[in-house]
Design a protein around this nucleic acid. Structure first.
Lengths: 210, 210
DNA sequence: CGTCAAACGCAACTAGAGTTGCGTTATGAG
DNA sequence: CTCATAACGCAACTCTAGTTGCGTTTGACG
């Protein structure tokens, strides 16, 4: 998790600034995981990281900036979807990952914080957009492989399939505030996989039933 | 919008308390619509409504309480989905309503505020859950009518169909922070309608392709 | 090794959110 | 009409998030 002590491309790679950066961002993630987005404070992060309060305000501007930076920081870490050999089970694993990310501590609070902070800061919203776009790109592999296996028609939009599979999970957890059952996960994966097989995600194709 | 000056079941239906309630909640909605959730303040709402700051804090506890009350208040207003005669077009209209509710001012800020405040307050989260559950119940009519018309198999879970149709819209707007195109709306409605027609929302039914 | 600028630590300050005690007003019941 | 009380308005207060001026430290570079 904290394996990047030196950023080669930065201005002062191994200096005090870089150490402060990792200390502050790690403290931000820890604080979020323990107390959640509603309770996080610049003073708490400063005290936890050992970096002075004024420095944190100067470099990150506030809680929003901390979340934004932590999000960009997390986006750098490698991530790839689980591969099971079939599209339905791949999508199911994807949906399960999302559900776990929002229900199991401490990741739960961090994930929710990113979404919540995006409402209050355009910079966080942009960072969240980039983060999700990256996840879409990486997750798309399971769809392109399904196309290669002949499970799906050529021209299927891979990222759109991913969105369709995970959207209902986010909806239940963040919008309608309902629990997500294993049956819910299976239904999303099933519907998306079937729709994809039927060619519903081929952009150029006209509506199958006008 | 402000047609309920007296709540018959309340303790003091037509008194100063009731007037203050409507004034404060209306001011909350107005303030949210103009400046958004990030800028709303108890002082601003108090000044706008003419009700004293201390009174607002005593009765609602803070911004979270205001949003929660405004949400419950809005939930009382009658709402029903548009009816077009077919399931696909009904679901499309539903998805369009959601998209407009989050993109057109001033409703946009109010909708976003409800979701955002739910992250910071369990009471708001509960209110949001109730609000969405009510919307699900009301929207389910378009599905039950489709069942009655023979478009969908008996036993189809109506509210689950609704969730499936609107979830991708919320996902793009609030999570991945992407624009929602008319083609996106048509795709969601199409996929959900087709899946429903195939019996994907009949709970007792086993997986169609084991 | 010496220099210099950027970043940092520190402490004091400002501003605004949230609280509290008390007198006043309005409302529903008798 | 009178009265008891709950809700309200008011002002003064506390507390904490956020800012700022200044001296000090750090690390890149010659």
């Amino acid at each position: 998790m904290s394996s990047q002590e030196s950023a080669p491309g930065s201005a002062r790679p191994g200096g005090r600034t870089a150490r402060n950066t990792t200390a502050v961002l790690q403290a931000t993630l820890d604080e979020l995981g323990e107390h959640g987005y509603g309770a996080i404070t610049v003073d708490l992060v400063a005290a936890r990281s050992g970096v002075h309060k004024a420095t944190v305000y100067r470099r990150w501007g506030g809680v929003d900036g901390l979340v934004r930076a932590a999000l960009d920081w997390s986006a750098d870490q490698d991530w790839e979807p689980a591969r099971t050999g079939g599209l339905y089970t791949d999508l199911l694993a994807l949906a399960e990952t999302v559900a776990e990310g929002f229900t199991e501590a401490p990741e739960r609070e961090v994930s929710a914080a990113a979404i919540a902070a995006a409402f209050e800061s355009g910079a966080v919203a942009d960072a969240l957009h980039r983060f999700m776009a990256d996840r879409h790109r990486r997750s798309a592999v399971v769809v392109t492989e399904a196309i290669a296996r002949g499970e799906l028609p050529e021209g299927t939009d891979p990222e759109e399939v991913v969105r369709s599979a995970v959207a209902p999970v986010y909806y239940r957890l963040l919008v309608s505030r309902e629990p997500v059952s294993p049956a819910d996960l299976r239904r999303t994966a099933r519907i998306t996989a079937d729709a994809a097989a039927a060619g519903a995600f081929v952009p150029a194709a006209p509506d199958p039933a006008p």
